[in-house]
Design a protein around this nucleic acid. Structure first.
Length: 210
DNA sequence: ACATTAAGTGATT
DNA sequence: AATCACTTAATGT
């Protein structure tokens, strides 16, 4: 496990910190589609991602979902930071977009290391900043972009995090992530295909314009 | 062969 | 852009 830690975070953290992480961190692997965290659940640990991607969702009153952003290797979840200061319960849902390998760090350590390690402090602050930025981009896309632009952004994003230009999904799933109806997505996808930006097949979408 | 699920389409708001 | 109603296509049993 230490090798993975060093491989993915060695350039960020000093050896002592890597040791400390290795000591308290609990390795965890999650299969694709599994729920990692749900709304209202108490947060006890923060994830350090080694492999795979996680999608972060918000839920409305009717139980409909909305994709906020993806987490990738080297990322960590900003929600865990806020929980340390506030309620301790999650405001978001996290689902494994692909198979995941990560390490869970107890929130207590996370707090302690903030004072002890400059590199950790920088890592946490940078991550927070990055998440905030991504969140704003998502807000922008919802508020200012047309649906077709938004859809294209979604597809590119998804292709990016899975490292595959062929996205395995259904129109319905896309619609739910974007909080719209399947019919709308089907129509837009059809149009994007005619424009030569994507290729459609049952249960898969190939993104050409990367 | 039949049921189920995914995707395409016209019409209406 | 959302919803309804309906069709067609693909896939599982």
């Amino acid at each position: 496990m230490y090798e993975k830690l060093e491989q993915h975070y060695g350039y960020l953290f000093e050896p002592e910190l890597l040791d400390a992480i290795n000591k308290v961190g609990v390795p965890r692997s999650v299969k694709q589609g599994e729920k990692i965290m749900d709304i209202g659940q108490t947060i006890t640990a923060m994830p350090l991602l080694f492999e795979g991607a996680i999608k972060i969702l918000r839920e409305d009153d009717d139980g409909d979902e909305l994709l906020l952003y993806f987490l990738e290797k080297g990322d960590t979840c900003a929600m865990t930071f806020t929980c340390c200061l506030g309620s301790g319960t999650s405001e978001i849902r996290a689902i494994a977009e692909t198979d995941i390998e990560m390490m869970m760090i107890p929130v207590a350590c996370m707090d302690k290391w903030m004072q002890e390690y400059r590199s950790w402090r920088k890592f946490v602050l940078d991550s927070y900043h990055e998440r905030m930025h991504e969140l704003l981009e998502t807000v922008d896309s919802i508020a200012f972009m047309r649906m077709d632009e938004r859809l294209m952004r979604y597809l590119k994003d998804k292709a990016m995090v899975t490292h595959d230009d062929v996205i395995q999904t259904t129109h319905l799933e896309v619609a739910q992530d974007m909080h719209t109806s399947r019919v709308v997505i089907s129509r837009l996808l059809k149009r994007l295909e005619k424009e030569g930006k994507i290729e459609l097949n049952r249960n898969s979408i190939k993104v050409l314009a990367l």
